[in-house]
Design a protein around this nucleic acid. Structure first.
Lengths: 247, 247
DNA sequence: TCTAAATGAGTATATATGACTCAATATAAA
DNA sequence: TTTATATTGAGTCATATATACTCATTTAGA
């Protein structure tokens, strides 16, 4: 993958190689930025103020920078997603989980030209959500409940992308500790449960959830943290994910 | 997504719109073509006969056709994958499962130019594998055990792509009846078990596997088929996946 | 006829799940 | 100060599942 792995033959070949000027598609990244607000899973939509789909709501996104394609190569796909995330939200990206959820390239998905879009899901902690400020070329940005967004006439093929993101998130939830990216560093059992409920759109028995939770403590996935969480009633113990070095 | 959903404003805008000539990356599809041979999970590699990476083994793949990008738009990503699969193997694609497993776009992943590749996994029934013939610009094609391929110095970032495909396949195996794409229409319990063993690279207790299997019959995922499978010993009953209309 | 190999069936144990009940605790309203 | 209420925290019980294990049955082939 790096130039150092190339043979002498490769280097000689490359010094005379001129990329044929095939027609190429534009390549973009689209972001499904998710967080939990009022115990509901919400995503960030921007209202377009240019045709096509003017006034329609859309996922934030933008072009992947590719340099001149030869000597300068631009940014990686993940870097493009990070940059767009930062531009659209004003937030630092180092604490926000970004995961690729698929590539979308239907020939007519953008009426202007052929565009292949790499979609990323971004999980933002609710504590950061209030600091999000509109940026880029968006007229307005708004958090919208995912359930509602699925019924809206979003621009382009964005309903399909949002649907894929939800599917990805639900898959991850049962198989990993993805919920940590949607929680403050410490949290109560009920807070974690409400994240699960919001994502899966079901209600979960508190007692049974507690049992599954306590097994996560046995497995050293979660540990008790100092302090208690003040609630409307009996204060709850707070916990945190054990830091294993990987997000 | 279709033109009919556009407003009059959109159509007026598009009639005068000229796509800016940003630099664009080339977009390709790469294929991880998998099957089971001799109870081992194998993938199809092609030996390159052009620089870069000449003589090195690589995944089959090729450019996505995009037409002129405006009036003619070319093919969808999945169509490109199907076309490449057909070109590389000579097989009809309608019986072969193709699933997108990720987009790879590291700036230097191809030393010639900036390339974004959409990777697909293809699951080929072992009964079809012998009919595969080398095609396209490949000097040689060869089935290679996945375990071996992971240790080979494959071209480009193809080790990463193959690894992602294996991860995808293992995930799917436990969550769906993906194995049906790697089996003949009817099969014995032992044949299905060996597919699982090959994919997960573990040995599975036949009795316990049988119990899980019988539950799939209770769930109407699998049903008994007429006939018996002649083995080295006691003939086994044969089964088939219940056709639910979706692959 | 005997042996090997695979099918087919069953046991015991530990663990997970889902629907429950119930007590303890602390806040907020009366 | 007392009382009502919401929530935490703990436990029961029936059911389902996973894993390791044993054992009988059936058939092909030596």
């Amino acid at each position: 993958m790096t130039r150092s792995q190339l043979t002498h033959e490769d280097k000689a070949f490359l010094s005379t190689y001129d990329p044929a000027t095939y027609e190429r598609p534009a390549v973009t990244v689209d972001l499904v930025i998710l967080t939990i607000l009022d115990d509901r899973l919400v995503l960030l939509l921007v209202q377009r103020n240019e045709p096509p789909y003017r006034k329609k709501w859309a996922l934030p996104g933008g072009f992947v920078r590719v340099g001149n394609g030869k000597s300068s190569r631009g940014e990686d796909l993940l870097e493009a997603a990070q940059r767009e995330l930062s531009e659209e939200t004003g937030l630092p990206t180092d604490d926000i989980l970004l995961a690729q959820i698929g590539a979308f390239g239907a020939p007519m998905r953008d009426p202007r030209m052929r565009v292949v879009s790499i979609a990323y899901a971004a999980l933002v902690r609710p504590t950061l959500a209030p600091f999000i400020q509109a940026g880029g070329d968006a007229a307005r940005t708004e958090w919208t409940a995912l359930n509602d967004a699925m019924k809206m006439p979003l621009a382009f093929d964005h309903p399909e992308i949002a649907s894929k993101a939800l599917q990805w998130l639900r898959d991850q939830l049962v198989r990993s500790s993805i919920a940590r990216s949607l929680l403050p560093p410490t949290f109560s059992i009920a807070e974690l449960r409400r994240v699960h409920e919001a994502i899966l759109d079901v209600s979960i028995d508190p007692g049974n959830f507690r049992k599954r939770f306590l097994r996560m403590i046995d497995d050293s996935v979660i540990e008790q943290a100092p302090g208690r969480r003040i609630t409307a009633s009996k204060p709850a113990s707070v916990y945190r994910f054990v830091d294993t070095g990987r997000s």
